[in-house]
Amino acid sequence: MYHGKRLMIRNQAKLKPALDTCNKASAEVWNLCLRKSKAHHLATGKWIGKTQLQSETKQTVALHSQSIQAVAHKYLNARLAAKEAKTAGRKDVRYPYKEKFFFNTKWVGQAFSIEGNVVTLSLGIRNGKRQPPLKLRVSGLDGIPVETIKEVELCHDIHYYLSVTYDDGIENPPLGQQQAASVDLGEIHSIASFAEGGSSVLISGRKARSIHQLRNKKLAQLQRLQSKCKKGSRQWKKYQKAKNFVRTKSARQLQDALHKTTKNF
């Protein structure tokens, strides 16, 4: 069974410029995928294929080749998902079009190595020269078999962290014949369920609702203050940073509340 875990990066203040460079480079690859795909479609009337897209994005930035391919694969998957949604009749879906300034960087296979609490991330070859790897000291590896880690992704949520995916080698047992239950999801009551045997459960959702209300109240206050500042000024950026903090904190609180709700169910 595959699991995901977040690893916190130590000494992040010194490493932030290098981490920014990685995710900016991945954003360049994403933007290049958009431009190449658009140009190919205008010229031929068809979408660019996987092989050609990988060839035209190869060694365009100072990242490992597999990291560049991972961005191309994310673009292709997003395009395929949009096509399937359109085929299903959805009219509010658009193909990927928006350029990015930052994009998560992923390392798979031989592109990373782990020794102790140090994660070494390869930056590949640029202009015929191998780039010095990025070495990060992390916390949170306890209990994870290092040899089972399949991929490492550099993410940002107020601070940078590494998201790792690993396989614990345990397969889920086959699901046996069980009774069915109907479930109704709501806002005031997160879950209202009734089972075939006659048992029922009602779980309150007021905790999640209060998180939403407090988040909206705080954001409205900050927006009123920010609207009085010149866009791009120092004070405007402080309010923007505070808004991002409120959004991130409330998202974590909401995720925790939903996890507790499903566990209770």
Rank of each mutant, 00 (worst) to 15 (best):
I149F: 11
L154D: 00
E151W: 07
G143E: 09
L123V: 02
I125T: 13
L154N: 01
D157G: 01
L123W: 00
K135E: 13
K135R: 15
V146M: 05
P133E: 01
P133A: 10
I158M: 10
G140T: 11
N127I: 00
G140V: 08
I125R: 13
L134P: 00
L134I: 11
G140W: 05
K129R: 14
P132L: 06
P132W: 04
Q131M: 08
H156R: 15
G140L: 06
G124I: 01
L154I: 13
L141P: 06
Q131V: 11
H156T: 04
K129F: 10
G124K: 05
N127W: 00
H159P: 00
G128A: 14
C155M: 12
D157E: 15
K150V: 03
P145S: 10
H159S: 14
K150F: 05
V146Q: 09
E147G: 11
V138L: 13
L123A: 04
D142A: 15
S139D: 13
S139K: 15
G124V: 06
I158K: 13
I149P: 08
Q131I: 14
E147H: 14
S139Y: 11
H156M: 02
L141R: 04
T148V: 04
R126P: 00
E151H: 12
V138G: 06
L141Q: 06
I125N: 13
P132M: 02
Q131P: 04
V146P: 10
K135M: 13
V152F: 02
P145N: 07
I144N: 05
I144Q: 05
I149K: 02
T148L: 05
L123T: 00
I125M: 07
P132A: 03
P132C: 06
K129A: 12
L136G: 09
I125F: 04
P133R: 02
K150M: 09
G128D: 09
D142N: 14
N127D: 12
G124S: 09
